[in-house]
Design a protein around this nucleic acid. Sequence first.
DNA 1: ATTTTATATATTTAAATAATTAAATATTTA
DNA 2: TAAATATTTAATTATTTAAATATATAAAAT
Lengths: 132, 132
Amino acid sequence: MINIFKALGDSHRLNILKLLTCREMGACEIIQAIGLSQPAIAHHLKILKQAGLINSEKEGKIVFYTLNKDGLREFYKQVDGFLDELACFSCSRPKPSPLRQNPNLCTEMGFDPEACEKIIDEEKIIIKRKRR
Amino acid sequence: MINIFKALGDSHRLNILKLLTCREMGACEIIQAIGLSQPAIAHHLKILKQAGLINSEKEGKIVFYTLNKDGLREFYKQVDGFLDELACFSCSRPKPSPLRQNPNLCTEMGFDPEACEKIIDEEKIIIKRKRR
DNA sequence: ATTTTATATATTTAAATAATTAAATATTTA
DNA sequence: TAAATATTTAATTATTTAAATATATAAAAT
């Protein structure tokens, strides 16, 4: 999902996607519509392709690009799940930090140990933690 | 929306958001949980704040951060609208490129003029177009 | 048919730009 | 004072870009 966020975090790439709304375009059309160099467009198209946001189909010399609707749908589902889990919209209010009770916690013991052993991403990577 | 995509396109920032799931955290807790320097965390928090993804509340020396649920909800709506407009999920198949009929169009006349006068983003900026 | 020649796209390379980071410093508050 | 956070600065790293080159396909010429 982070690669999709990165892919979408560029105005030229967003514009390419918008150009592809409801139509296919040859790469040469995209080049001239956007107004960047051919290699730059090729680069952006590659990033969009790798992110699963567009399809490509070669016919003769020309490569035709279209939106990858399945990829976009999948991305939508991921964002939905991510935000749902994250913001827990059904929950009431966030649990107060232990620093509210004891403002010296950070100094005394670094931080809330429970918090820091939490697994924070899908790849099950445990967040780094300074040892004392 | 692009600033939110940019904000989300960084693993540390995604991890900060995940840490804030259902709880508030003081900046010092976040610093130690993520394991980056204090200025680096301050920088990431600023970007998340500016993107409208988190709230901050100062109490004494400590700044407490929480998720901005309204901001997240708003982002969700924007992504929903963006993808809906983009992929036009109700539509059938993309309109074929004029290059399908005439593969020399790119060379002969540059590109489909109609396509290139299309306004391609919310800010009503007309896409650049090479003059012949 | 085979060899040119031109066109469309991809890749490589190098330069410019932007993002990330830690160190140093400043600001705020206890 | 000291602690928590923010800002500034400078270095590193990543991204974006155009120029040059490579590859693939098609059309033209031999």
